[in-house]
Amino acid sequence: MIFKTFLKRLFPRSFDEQIYNLTPKELIIRKSSNHGGFKFGLFLLTVIFLFAIFGPVILDVSPYEQDLTKRLLPPVWKEGGTWEYIFGTDGNGRDYFARILYGTRISLTIGFGAACVGMIIGVTLGVCAGYFGGWVDQIVSYLLTCQLALPGLLLAMTIVFLIGPSITVVIFVIGATHWAFFLVVSRSATQKIKNLDYVTAASAIGASKFQIIMKDIIPNTVSQIIVIFTLEVGIAILNEASLSFLGVGIQPPTPSWGLLIAEGKEAIFFQPWLIILPGIALFTLVVSINMLGDGLRDVSDPNNKVSEE
């Protein structure tokens, strides 16, 4: 039952009756060209990616270099701001623009890293549960219940306490608490696919279980996994920000946006840009990823008429 509640929340449409025969490439090409949100998200994300990769190289700014005599300078549009520090400086006299720019890399790394970890855990468990059924399914369902019921934030705080915070630890902690969607979707897809004629045929001619899973089942779940993956990247980025905000995520001086917001929090009334700017950066990135994800969901859903109108 817990699978079903979950599915409903994720895919309000009658998702589980769909089986995809098209490759993700064909799907995207066929439908994405007239989906506005998808195109906008893709464009925005590409721009952010380019910024994150090439920005620091071209602009030659350092997020770590401090000048304690130039602390808390206002951004250029405020009184007293200069073009030298477009977004002003933080409490340690570091270039805030450089810190936000570098923060993009951190967020993207963690977002994609954590979604990958979550995907590996979720899809493995989901395919096993769906393919083998029976007690394997029961155990997986129990694990899922445990994971859903555990307040993720509390678990993450404890684990980060345990191993000591670093980017890798944060990636794994977030990944380890975000595999439910992957599991539910890959499980139900596997259940549907394994009873199809060609899979039973493959099994009849002596293909091993592993071969069937790798060759027949996994490739057929890809399009749905991609949708989940995109949405999970956005969720993971927000999660990292929350953890860093509470002081149990990324360690200073690494410029994580959540950490920047936490550091600027005390000065909220006097230097509000310290929290507004990284907040906007975070928002833009997550919006672009979510629009891409929503777009992917729409275009990969054959039942969807609205987006084609």
Partner: peptide, 18 residues
């Protein structure tokens, strides 16, 4: 700030703030 100062003389600091 201290970590940055130590970094300047070659001591690469991993700050463990908790």
């Amino acid at each position: 700030a201290m970590a940055e100062d130590l970094g300047k003389v070659g001591i690469k600091v991993n700050l463990k703030h908790g």
